[in-house]
Amino acid sequence: MAEIIVVTSGKGGVGKTTSSASLACGLARRGKKVVVIDFDVGLRNLDLIMGCERRVVYDFVNVTQGEASLKQALIKDKRFDNLFVLAASQTRDKDALTKEGVEKVLKDLADDGFDYIICDSPAGIEKGAFLAMYFADQAVVVVNPEVSSVRDSDRILGLLDSKTRHAEDGESIKAHLLLTRYNPQRVDGGEMLSVKDVEEVLGLKTIGVIPESGEVLNASNKGEPVILDMESNAGQAYDDAVARLMGEERPMRFTQLEKKGFFSKIFGG
């Protein structure tokens, strides 16, 4: 059975695509057969973050409209044989994706033996975001520790509770909190909402906390999801999140201010 996971947030620019790419790579690295789908019709970007932008021939809309087969449109990742990308269309027609079209593609992917289908949602609460979440079994809600992001996420949680297939069947879908751009130093200084604050306000359990880090931009620049950089704190934090997504228990890291020792203070280590 394929597990469909939507990566969503409401607000734009909080790290949905970055997170989708890293979660997909992390699951693939653990041997799972994974496809990550860009639902942002008109504003294709997942391909850039995954580093396969020059290999996009056919896209998601081409498949739903029968202009290409799923096999033709799936882009195989260069790093993992069991990881595939389905790019968003660049069309300006916002109605290019339909519920039936999406359902068929998801079913075909499940029949193909995929373990995980990651749906990278566009920002906002319009059709693209609705379609990305509609068929999901689980949701990863990406939140920055900042008021507008938290409020928008709560809107999204309301939609997850009412506008998904599972909700219509009277079931609930499991939602996880993924905090990104977290800065323990600012939290310590009382300038930034803490993990606990956001958990309490939204009533969600945290699946990962990604520290604010220059490595994330470096990774995007190179087209190599940051989870592949296991030297970086952000990469390790994403790896922890993937482990938790697969049911492992792991303590939260990078959420506490590191107390610098005497020597490192002097030598700047």
Partner: peptide
């Protein structure tokens, strides 16, 4: 003494989200 703006943020969010949740559905 630094002003704790995070707690202001949390209080404001609690109120507005509670209000928005009652309208939901």
């Amino acid at each position: 003494a630094k002003k704790n703006t995070a707690s202001i943020a949390k209080d404001r969010l609690r109120i507005i989200i509670a209000q928005e949740r009652t309208n939901r559905g």
